[in-house]
Nucleic acid binder design. Structure first.
Length: 479
RNA sequence: GGCGCAUUCGUCUAGUGGUCUAGGACGUCGGCCUCUCACGCCGGUAACAGGGGUUCGAACCCCCUAUGCGCUACCA
């Protein structure tokens, strides 16, 4: 079997959305898995809606996800000439014909029929069987007065869909559809076939919405005697309300998820699980795992709902498993953490990341948390303040803790903990009442971090360092 | 309307005639761990769209119905 060549062919009318990204991903994963080629084609023939900005947005989105095409990008618009030539070749072969009927008349016929819920089919009997030379002759005499239509033969077309099973369509359901408009521009179904053949694509994985285009395209391949590629139609991605995912569901551009603190690794992992599974219980997978395990025969034909909760859970899993250095980079590098403060070392930042990475689900949370290591908190959890610091004694305890820490010969995890426990015992002895360690620990954490939750206190203490710890603990009023 | 596609816990899914009193994951609930939270661990909750067949036996095969979606353009 020859090399597998797959492609992603978005039309640049907006950013790279989640559905498109999933389609691209499945193509890319398969190419990587099987050792084939992943191609990219920009279908920019719709001049009204296509923009260079959108092309850029798609490229940026794909780069973020880590998918790069293996060959130069093909821009469909640049192949306009070939598309037109293909239409004429089709006439040459008797597989297409020139239609001189009035499009306005046809349109009104169609609308009338549709109004009564009846099926409209173009009747090409007046042009279908005109001898080729006569057609060509009239085309020359009446330029701009005709469209070219594909002649649909009798019978039916079927293909063995990679995702579904065999799909069969009777040609009686099909029109002699237009492949070249009166204005000389080719129609989508024609351009796609021309380009896919040009790029030697032999497996087309695309959205479900193209199922009904497939027989038309196969007919063109066959008319040209070209090898028909394999097709696989991926199900849609839905919003929580089970309607096709769209802008009103919130973020649908992959870039939005980067802004939301998502690791591209997590996004890829999550997208891969929408309509595909390993078959065992493996869910958290690296890019490399996915490439190794991806398979066509395990793609599901059923539409899947995009579940943000699971996406963020997966993100947390990936963050927790990642090396601090990797996370540092993914968060936007050192400046994302320290800004212009050059007194903070990279080692310090990495330590902060290590300390917090298992308890965040988003990168922006990680950045904010790690900063606690070198920035005094300015905001304090309101609930926590109410609970832990309403008792004036809490401040006293923290101050005595500061004194004790300051006096410590060695500022270590165990030494600081011992010092705290000692104070607890001392207070217990002095008052005759059992004092819980939490009476020290909780206010202390709050003063140090501004938060009520976080890593073990003495790990935090060590991360912040003696000088800052003492300073923060001596705050007497944070309200 | 026609044609096509789909239908297992709230969600993602495993399941290809007996191993299914239907498994896993997210969520949720309870518990353990613990200075808190997270991680981790243990446990609970919750599904084969409906109806007919075929078969000794059906989530799995066939038919019908329902529901949802897509297409039905000289859009892509």
């Amino acid at each position: 079997m020859s090399e597998v060549r797959v492609r992603f062919a978005p039309s640049p009318t907006g950013y790279l959305h989640v559905g498109g990204a999933r389609t691209a991903l499945f193509n890319w994963l398969w190419a990587r898995h099987i050792g084939g080629k992943f191609l990219l084609r920009i279908e920019d023939t719709d001049q009204q809606r296509s923009t260079p900005e959108a092309v850029e947005a798609i490229l940026v989105g794909m780069k973020w996800l880590g998918m790069a095409p293996d060959e130069p990008i093909v821009y469909q618009m640049k192949r306009h000439k070939e598309h037109v030539e293909l239409c004429y070749e089709l006439i040459e072969r008797g597989a297409a014909y020139a239609d001189f009927s009035d499009p306005a008349v046809e349109a009104s016929k169609r609308e009338a029929l549709q109004a009564e819920k009846k099926q409209y089919k173009f009747d090409g009997s007046a042009f279908r069987d005109v001898p080729k030379v006569k057609q060509l002759d009239r085309m020359v005499r009446e330029p701009g007065q005709f469209a070219i239509r594909l002649r649909i033969p009798e019978g039916s077309t079927e293909w063995d869909d990679v995702v579904h099973s065999t799909i069969k369509v009777n040609h009686s359901e099909l029109d002699d559809f237009v492949i070249l408009r009166r204005d000389g521009t080719p129609i989508y179904n024609l351009a796609v076939v021309s380009d896919d053949h040009f790029q030697r694509v032999n497996l087309i994985l695309r959205g479900d919405d193209h199922v009904s285009n497939t027989p038309k395209q196969i007919l063109i391949y066959q008319a040209m005697n070209w090898e028909v590629p394999r097709f696989g139609h991926l199900p849609m991605i839905l919003g929580p309300d089970k309607v096709k995912l769209s802008k009103r569901h919130g973020a649908t551009a992959v870039g939005d998820y980067g802004d939301m603190g998502l690791l591209p690794e997590a996004m890829i992992n999550f997208l891969s699980l929408l309509g595909w599974s390993t078959g065992d219980d493996t869910e958290v997978m690296s890019q490399q795992d996915l490439i190794e395990r991806f398979s066509l025969d395990r793609i599901m034909p059923k539409a899947a709902v995009f579940d943000l909760q699971k996406l963020f859970w997966l993100n947390g899993q990936h963050i927790g498993k990642s090396e601090p250095k990797f996370l540092l980079e993914k968060c936007g590098g050192l400046t994302a953490f320290i800004g212009n403060d050059t007194t903070v070392t990279e080692a310090k930042v990495l330590a902060g990341i290590e300390l917090w990475k298992s308890r965040v689900r988003r990168l922006d949370e990680l950045v904010a948390a790690a900063k606690i290591g070198w920035e005094d908190p300015v905001e304090f959890d309101a609930e926590g303040v109410k609970k832990q610091l309403s008792d004036p004694k809490a401040y006293e305890r923290c101050a005595s803790l500061a004194d004790a820490f300051e006096a410590l010969p060695e500022f270590t995890h165990d030494a600081t903990e011992a010092a705290l426990r000692q104070l607890v015992e001392a207070e217990t002895a002095a008052t005759g009442e059992k004092v819980a360690a939490g009476k020290y620990i909780h206010p202390c954490r709050l003063l140090l971090t501004g938060r009520t939750v976080g890593p073990g206190l003495f790990d935090v203490v060590l991360d912040i360092g003696r000088e800052a710890v003492v300073r923060r603990l001596r705050k007497t009023n944070i309200a």
